[in-house]
């Protein structure tokens, strides 16, 4: 249990901290550390963005992060430390939205665990992004359905060879 750290950080209280993530996954056994950092970018789908707001269902988000971590442990099949943290609240351009870090004995497992975790966070965790635009308009991003019936329908609609139909 102590090899997986999960957090939801209210941006009004603190920013996400990559050095804390690196500290957590560091271990004398580990020669490989990978990190993914997601930041707020200035354009999306051709519109100029001034910032985003993240809404989370915190208890289920934390539980989902933990489940994702346990899945990464099973996938790697050896020693792993994994850190998953997501921001909540209003973020400006360049602010950190998400950090995933993985520490393992060698690089291959570290890359695999980090990739598995960030993809699962994006597609499975109860988190919603609202974009704010320069013209004052705001919009919630299109996302992935968590409803099994709809997930199955979305999978069936995908072209062969395509893993995912959305641009996120």
């Amino acid at each position: 249990m102590h090899d997986i750290h999960t957090a939801v950080t209210d941006i009004a209280e603190a920013a996400l901290d990559p050095s804390a993530a690196l500290d957590f996954v560091s271990d004398p056994r580990f020669g490989g550390i990978t990190t993914f950092i997601g930041r707020v970018r200035v354009h999306n789908l051709g519109r100029s963005v001034t910032g985003v707001s993240y809404d989370l269902f915190r208890p289920l988000a934390l539980r989902t992060f933990q489940t994702i971590g346990e899945r990464a442990e099973a996938e790697v099949g050896g020693p792993l430390k994994l850190y998953i943290a997501h921001a909540q609240g209003r973020l400006a351009i360049g602010d950190l939205a998400v950090i995933v870090a993985a520490g393992t004995p060698h690089r291959d497992e570290a890359f695999r665990a980090c990739r598995l975790a960030i993809e699962a966070v994006k597609h499975e965790a109860p988190i919603w992004k609202q974009e704010h635009y320069v013209d004052g308009d705001s919009a919630w991003s299109e996302g992935c359905s968590l409803c099994e019936e709809h997930r199955d329908a979305e999978r069936a609609a995908l072209q062969p060879g395509s893993q995912h139909g959305h641009g996120h």
Partner: peptide
Amino acid sequence: LAVLPPVSGG
């Protein structure tokens, strides 16, 4: 309960 629209984290 909570109702969760399609998700868009990360």
